[in-house]
Design a protein around this nucleic acid. Structure first.
Lengths: 196, 196
DNA sequence: CTCCAATCTTGTCACCGGAAAGATTGGGGG
DNA sequence: CCCCCAATCTTTCCGGTGACAAGATTGGAG
């Protein structure tokens, strides 16, 4: 199941109350972001997609930044879960990083654009810290000496993040678009193999 | 001199014709992007900053995507120039990559977000190719064997790009904000030193 | 000096985000 | 069982926005 969609809608087709508007709007947002980026849509369009008046989403998210905060927070949750599941091996963490960016592009494109949302949101910050912790500890295993821990972490993080960003923006040669995960694995192995 | 501002404005204070509207709007856009990202401003606001009617910019750029195309094109020009000037040493190219992103944040934030502009613009594509060429040739010197050229290039590119992106989004630990260039140099050295 | 093409302005339209005020609903307490 | 309240959603309105059309102004080429 992708972004934990619940879809109770079909049960009560009509009626004043939607039933699960919050989730419906979030899902609509994720779709819209996937189609045209984190700024290529309007709140009103999401409301239309959810079959609801244009002011309804405001009740659940406050404003547009509130919606994007919710998207980013959920994104960091899924992200942290993903990384933690791969935490055994450094290579796996890097590949999981890239796989998340590709598979959950909508989340990823919001998460690392803090000017779009309220980065000081507590639950969001917690999930972000959780993800960062996996990166730090897994990259630590790669570091040749404790003194190099910080640099190694930043390097590994930069490598994975940069690959993801370049792939998402379509900057990589077209061949990369077939199987980004395999290519990412090769690239990270090149780095981790020689540092170790 | 930053983004080649010319500023003929003060000469002719009044008058129907601005004199250099195109540049004035571009400069206003670069300022606005630096302040609030590539989507945190309006065309009309730029027109006001340039002291001109709300419809004047359209004559020079067509629409908002046209303006952002011009920004991205100019950005890739400056970027390619910067990289070419550093093309002797691989480490220098990487550092120049990061320095450009930090010093010309407004350009950088538009350049790698192709959904904002018309990526098929010929002059833009040419400058982008020019920059890519520097990356490929300089990273090639780092490659242990010709068979690894492609992977090494992508890895080096990802490293520099990822560091730049993480720094710009404020994701790196706060210590990094003092001197990103020095930190970038250390990170890239860690990578290039071990691959060679 | 005239006329033309580039440049800029004014006016208009549909749409957007946000706020205010009102309608509807379901569920818990009497 | 029913009423009332709080949550949810709708309607209405406002200032601002991007895009377009039509008109005014200007400098310079001929």
């Amino acid at each position: 199941m992708d972004h934990r969609s619940v879809e109770v809608r079909q049960i009560k087709q009509t009626g004043y109350h939607h039933g699960n508007l919050r989730r419906a709007v979030m899902d609509a947002a994720l779709e819209a972001i996937a189609e045209s980026g984190p700024a290529g849509w309007s709140l009103r369009e999401l409301a239309r997609r959810a079959g609801v008046s244009h002011a309804a989403p405001a009740h659940h998210f406050g404003d547009k930044a509130g919606l994007l905060t919710a998207v980013a927070a959920e994104g960091f949750e899924v992200f942290a879960d993903t990384l933690e599941r791969a935490a055994d091996d450094v290579l796996d963490v890097g590949v999981a990083y890239v796989r998340f960016a590709v598979a959950h592009r909508s989340y990823f494109e919001v998460m690392f654009r803090p000017e779009l949302y309220r980065a000081d949101d507590p639950s969001l910050a917690a999930a972000r810290e959780r993800a960062a912790h996996v990166l730090v500890t897994s990259a630590g295993k790669l570091s040749p000496s404790p003194a190099q821990d910080r640099l190694t972490t930043i390097a590994a993080w930069s490598l994975a993040h940069g690959f993801a960003g370049l792939w998402l923006s379509g900057a990589l040669p077209e061949a990369a678009h077939d199987d980004p995960e395999a290519l990412a694995r090769s690239v990270i192995r090149l780095f981790s193999g020689t540092t170790r």
